[in-house]
């Protein structure tokens, strides 16, 4: 699950570094280029959106997320998702079901990796 930077197209503008909520892309200073370490990439696609030269693409198998919601009946209010959400988009109090604010959600799916109760529902674009 990752995004990749086309080495030829990359101009080293570092917009992806700036946009990444997880501090993943790394600048190779000598080459004036940026790379995305595949094992660290969460797959949120914020970098693809901000790249002005269209150099960033989803790796094969990477699926874009359309919407993320919380299944109320499964949520135990452990707050793990809210604490880890890079967009501060999840609201709720301890031991009560949490809710995703769709206006703030950046559809990165990171909350899904933190939930131990299958309460995060991810709808993919394709």
């Amino acid at each position: 699950m990752a995004y990749q930077i086309d080495k030829f197209d990359c101009v080293g503008c570092c917009a992806c570094i700036f946009a990444c909520p997880f501090d993943v892309p790394t600048e190779i200073k000598e080459e004036h280029k940026v790379v995305i370490p595949e094992d660290k990439c969460v797959g949120c696609g914020q970098c693809e959106d901000i790249c002005p030269v269209a150099a960033i693409h989803p790796a094969p198998g990477q699926r874009k997320i359309r919407k993320v919601t919380i299944l109320e009946e499964n949520c135990i209010g452990c707050t793990a998702c809210a604490r880890n959400c890079p967009a501060n988009a999840i609201n709720g109090t301890v031991k009560n079901p949490h809710v995703i604010d769709q206006r703030k959600c950046i559809q990165c799916g990171y909350c899904g990796t933190k939930c131990k109760k299958d309460a995060i529902v991810i709808e993919y674009l394709a």
């Binding site: 101009v11 080293g12 503008c13 570092c14 004036h32 002005p52």
Partner: peptide, 12 residues
């Protein structure tokens, strides 16, 4: 030694 530029700049 090399180019550099502002973040998000396509000119560098």
């Amino acid at each position: 030694t090399r180019n550099s530029g502002c973040t998000s700049c396509v000119m560098q």
